[in-house]
């Protein structure tokens, strides 16, 4: 059996080393990883996927540690992907989310993996989604994805998770204001963590008001829950709301969302594939260099060049330009 075959077999058996190596492959070599993912694909779709996002300092990791504890008490197996940013200057990353969850790392039914953003939001989205698939295929009943709520990554989590939990904390001040704009529309559940702090109630009211303004009278109105994860308070309630949201999805348009997600992913895959093959061919034949020369010499422009090229190659597709 070849190497990829071994990985697939290992992942399906729940072998932790195979899971780890497959995720590395996803990170380092997407085209090779695609082959493995396509073999795992039919085994995915069973796990419940929870996204947890929020600003630094809101206590996401501690909250996840508590959720894992409760899920384990219920006998569920759990996989966690914790995403942290890479430095844009050095490409290095400091991945410190595990530290809160180390107690669970030796539990055979828990798998924790840290991933760095590697400065590529599109690539990250794909890598995270595929890593979750690996956990799913390996038999984890719940997969949790933790991202820092800033910039691009929070939007991605919407596409990956069934339920997105946005974690905020009182006293983070301006951060919340700044982040709100991007974060408010993606939350299915809002958590005010560190609720034993002053101003927790003010934060709740603040978030409720914002939800009331943006909530388009859909059937699911995001609840706002207070937790004090460090003391284990409110996590049971949070888990209940996550289950409620899952039930809601199952009754209302779970299929619709799933179809939409598949459509998006398929479109992305087609885009990737066509771009790769066309650019690849142009490079091989030297046409690309030639075109660049023409554009530089102002004999044509990038748009017209693309039109001409695609007309030739995408015969049979009715493209509107």
């Amino acid at each position: 059996m070849n190497h990829n075959g071994q990985l697939v077999e290992g992942v399906l058996k729940g072998d932790r080393r195979s899971i780890a190596r497959t995720i590395t492959l996803i990170e380092n070599n997407p085209s090779e990883a695609r082959k493995v993912i396509s073999k795992l694909y039919s085994h995915t779709g069973k796990a419940q996927i929870i996204g947890i996002t929020g600003p630094t300092g809101s206590g996401k990791s501690t909250l996840i540690e508590r959720l894992v504890k409760e899920l384990r008490r219920k006998g569920k197996s759990v996989g966690i992907i914790a995403v942290d940013p890479s430095s844009p200057f050095t490409g290095g990353a400091f991945l410190g989310d595990r530290i809160r969850m180390q107690k669970h790392s030796i539990d055979g039914k828990v798998f924790i993996r840290s991933m760095a953003t590697r400065n590529s939001s599109g690539g990250l989205a794909r890598a995270t989604r595929d890593a979750v698939r690996v956990l799913d295929a390996s038999g984890k009943e719940v997969a949790i994805v933790e991202t820092v709520g800033a910039g691009q990554s929070e939007v991605d989590i919407r596409k990956i998770a069934h339920t997105v939990v946005v974690v905020l904390a009182p006293g983070l001040g301006d951060d919340i204001q700044a982040i709100k704009a991007g974060i408010m529309e993606i939350g299915d559940i809002f958590v005010v963590n560190k609720a034993d702090r002053e101003n927790a109630d003010a934060s709740v009211i603040d978030i409720e008001t914002t939800i009331n303004m943006s909530w388009e009278k859909k059937k699911w109105r995001p609840p706002v829950i207070k937790t004090t994860a460090a003391k284990g308070e409110g996590t049971t309630e949070l888990l209940n709301h996550i289950s409620l949201h899952m039930k809601y999805l199952e009754n209302e348009g779970f299929d619709k969302q799933r179809r939409q997600d598949v459509e998006t992913e398929l479109a992305e895959a087609i885009k990737q594939k066509t771009t790769d093959s066309i650019i690849g061919e142009l490079k091989r034949t030297g046409e690309l260099e030639e075109l660049i020369g023409k554009i530089l010499a102002k004999k044509t422009d990038p748009y017209s060049a693309a039109d001409t090229l695609l007309k030739e190659r995408l015969k049979g597709f009715k493209t509107r330009t």
Binding site: T62, F94, G96, I99, R100, A230, K231
Partner: peptide, 10 residues
Amino acid sequence: FGEYKEQITI
């Protein structure tokens, strides 16, 4: 009282 949890700042 509960237990101390390390807070990481690098």
